[in-house]
Design a protein around this nucleic acid. Structure first.
Length: 139
DNA sequence: GCCAACGTTGGC
DNA sequence: GCCAACGTTGGC
């Protein structure tokens, strides 16, 4: 199983909105970046990801799971853009801030730190375990 | 709200 | 195929 990180501005699509969708989940639509799209195409059912609030919040607030593999983004007719569906699994008990992530030298290679513009990113097993610990939640 | 960094577009 | 111009993202 692979791990990922999904970024969203909470004003547009936040953790609460994701939780409200429940088991049905929701398309992670609106991505118009090839790298982010390629990451979504690589996702498998059951892969998990962190849900990160960008611009306002700047912290990891929860864990989501891929509940539909890549398919056409329903918000466009452009066949270039695919997306997955994700559903909320659980919130983290302690939000993990970007500040805390940056402060830990073991997380210096995270995409979140090095390529802040990428909205859908891979996360390594080690990074996953470490952040779950920081968030006081099970991996 | 600003602006640096990055990605995309389009004229040549 | 290069690169200047432009648009967007996201931390600050």
């Amino acid at each position: 199983m692979a791990y990922w990180l999904f970024k969203s501005e909470p004003d547009v699509w936040g953790w609460d909105a994701q939780v409200a969708k429940g088991e049905a989940g929701e398309e992670w639509d609106g991505v118009r970046n090839y790298q982010a799209r390629n990451n979504m195409r690589a996702m498998k059912l059951g892969d998990q990801g962190f849900f990160y609030h960008s611009r306002t919040g700047l912290e990891i607030v929860g864990i989501v799971e891929v509940c539909a593999e890549a398919h056409r983004d329903s918000t466009t007719d452009d066949e270039r853009w695919d997306c997955v569906d994700v559903k909320a699994v659980r919130p983290v008990n302690t939000a993990v801030s970007l500040e805390k992530i940056k402060a830990d030298p073991r997380l210096k290679d995270m995409v979140l730190v090095n390529n802040s513009r990428l909205s859908v990113q891979p996360v390594t097993d080690e990074e996953w375990a470490m952040i779950c610990e920081m968030g006081n939640t099970k991996p």
